[in-house]
């Protein structure tokens, strides 16, 4: 392997990144860094923008490594970690050598980092499976807003595609400024700028249901066991903003 001083650029997608890494490893190149198209280079950077062949890239990597390894790699790709591309590069490089043993090699710094990040993404996705709140709009579409740190909308949409398969729904990720639209068959993830919603006004019935839920939430806590520390531990404040039942507490605190 030859260490270079160049920064390599890929086209923002997971497959494009995997293709670039394949190219780099094939040519025995250790990049200084890997960045996506949004990267604004400084004067000192050497930028390389190679032509990338993406055909059958998923099959290539699954056969060279394993499904579990590629899945982990995808989770890392979704994270907001600024070094994620390089972490993926070294994780895959080592995976070629160690195969599934890689999951136990926490003494290697790059593996340890990779597994930690992938775990964070899985963890956040799981939280949003529970904490996402829909409301029913006048056109009977279910609408939710979330603000995750990592780009979990794709995995989350898969979850709701199975669960709410006979409903129309929209989930808006206000952090990453993207939306997921579900039409009872598939979901489509689009840029916020390419989509305009006339109104997000809810139905009258919706208001009654929301009141029932808030009512239930307040009732179900046992006063004698009140434990803010424990609640904060499982449900940190950063999630409260989009959780209907917490709206009163946010007001009370501010």
């Amino acid at each position: 392997m030859k260490q270079t001083e160049s920064i390599y650029i890929y086209e923002n997608t997971f497959t494009s990144l995997l293709s670039l890494i394949k190219l780099l490893i094939k040519n025995k190149i250790k990049p200084l860094d890997i960045k996506n198209l949004n990267y604004s280079p400084t004067l000192l950077d050497t930028i390389v923008n190679p032509k990338i062949e993406e055909k059958n890239i998923m099959n290539f990597w699954t056969s060279k490594t394993s499904k579990e390894i590629i899945k982990t790699t995808y989770y890392i790709f979704l994270s907001n970690n600024s070094e994620k591309e390089l972490i993926i590069y070294y994780f895959l490089l080592n995976s070629l050598k160690y195969q599934n043993k890689i999951f136990y090699l926490r003494n290697l710094n790059c593996v340890n980092k990779a597994l930690k990040i992938s775990h964070q993404v899985i963890n956040e996705t799981h939280k949003f499976k529970g904490f996402t709140r829909f409301k029913e709009l006048k056109n009977h579409i279910l609408y939710a807003e979330i603000a995750p740190e990592n780009d979990v909308l794709d995995i989350l949409s898969n979850h709701f595609k199975n669960r709410l398969k006979n409903e129309y729904w929209i989930i808006k990720d206000t952090n990453h400024k993207i939306l997921s639209l579900y039409d009872k068959h598939n979901f489509y993830i689009i840029d916020n700028n390419n989509f305009k919603m006339d109104s997000i006004e809810a139905t009258c019935e919706n208001e009654e249901i929301e009141k029932l839920w808030k009512n239930f939430y307040k009732t179900i806590g046992i006063a004698e066991r009140k434990n803010d520390r424990c609640r904060m531990n499982f449900m940190p404040k950063k999630y409260w903003k989009n959780m209907l039942e917490m709206s009163d507490e946010i007001e009370k605190n501010s």
């Binding site: 799981h126 006063a223 434990n227």
Partner: peptide
């Protein structure tokens, strides 16, 4: 899946 946590810190998963 836990959907919320009550004021006593217990998980709310089901309509109980």
């Amino acid at each position: 899946i836990c959907h919320s946590f009550a004021s006593d810190g217990r998980c709310i998963s089901l309509l109980k």
